[in-house]
Design a protein around this nucleic acid. Structure first.
Lengths: 102, 102
DNA sequence: AGCAATGGTAAGTCGTAACTTACGTTAGTC
DNA sequence: GACTAACGTAAGTTACGACTTACCATTGCT
């Protein structure tokens, strides 16, 4: 049921921007904020949400906090989305009905 | 870039509930609303968002509108999420760094 | 034509969450 | 110890979006 937190987290554009930014590797909070049109505290709060959703991890490095992707949340999302593909019966039915008309 | 609309759409719990409800097959607006703690117009508005995101289709059936899953939006989401797994270089780097410490 | 069923749309309300600024904390440097 | 850099958190504001009710449009039936 953690997929809900992950979906909620990625439902925000700014949070997605931060998340996508981390595809290029780990980064510090200030560095992320500098590339976005929001303040550093805002980024900090977004990172908190992403972390609670298991989408991001952080480690201390001197006075900086390095944030990087966490695949745990991603795995939740993937398995969640897959449940929509394997609605076998309903799919067959819909496909069959569409083929009958024309 | 349509994945953004899909992520935004599924970022709402009520919309996810509607979306998951359609896994069992097509359904009418009123029937969906009857199983949720929201009004019928609310469901109608949510379905509009889901449709614009390519997550849902509808067809008329008498006076009713039957809504069903649309795999187009799902495909967008899947390919979007996959881009986070194949951040090969960054992953190798992170894994290597973690192995060095202990 | 008239009535019922179904649902999309308009308009307005209200709660929340995405921001901001201000402040406190920790770690490095001199 | 004093100063700086980098963050996190608190508190308060504000914009937005998830609702509601009311109304209109369409379809089907008698």
């Amino acid at each position: 049921m953690t997929y809900a937190a992950a979906m909620d987290a990625l439902g925000d554009p700014t949070r997605r921007a931060i998340f996508e930014r981390l595809k290029d590797g780990a980064s510090a909070v200030g560095d992320i904020a500098r590339e976005l049109p929001v303040s550093r505290p805002a980024v900090s709060q977004h990172l908190r949400v992403l972390k609670d959703a298991g989408l991001v991890r952080n480690r201390r490095e001197g006075t900086r906090r390095m944030y990087e992707l966490d695949h745990a949340g991603l795995e939740e999302l993937r398995t969640y989305l897959e449940t929509f593909w394997q609605t076998g019966l309903a799919d067959f039915k819909a496909a069959a009905e569409q083929r009958e008309e024309p």
